[in-house]
């Protein structure tokens, strides 16, 4: 899946079989519910904006996205709940309380 520009919104958890690519002008809008919003099998090439909506019921730590491998990061993160930041690990992008 590729987001060149414009916004991809997922309001239910999605699994991608073959990677994900987003460029600078793209936006990924995730509805943050209990599960992991986006599971990427394969490589995630990240850039542009991550927008979080309907964030509630967080308990200190929440996995937003998983991936096989990753290149790049989101340049902007919108809708971060107060006191949280995003943290990239080898296979995950998480919301973590400071």
């Amino acid at each position: 899946m590729k987001v060149q520009a414009g916004t991809l919104t997922t309001t239910a958890p999605v699994k991608l079989a073959k990677g994900y690519q987003q460029t600078q002008r793209g936006t990924l809008a995730l509805t943050v519910t209990r599960g992991t919003a986006l599971k990427i099998h394969g490589k995630a090439r990240l850039a542009g904006t991550l927008r979080l909506t309907h964030v509630k019921g967080l308990n200190g730590r929440h996995v937003l996205v998983t991936f096989g491998s990753r290149h790049g990061k989101f340049a902007h993160v919108q809708g971060l709940p107060k006191g949280y930041h995003v943290k990239y690990t080898a296979h995950k992008l998480e919301l973590v309380r400071r």
Partner: peptide
Amino acid sequence: VNQGENYNWVRRPRLVKD
């Protein structure tokens, strides 16, 4: 997605073979 205000994928496909 090349352009657009919004691009929703609202249902729950098990796997997007993409």
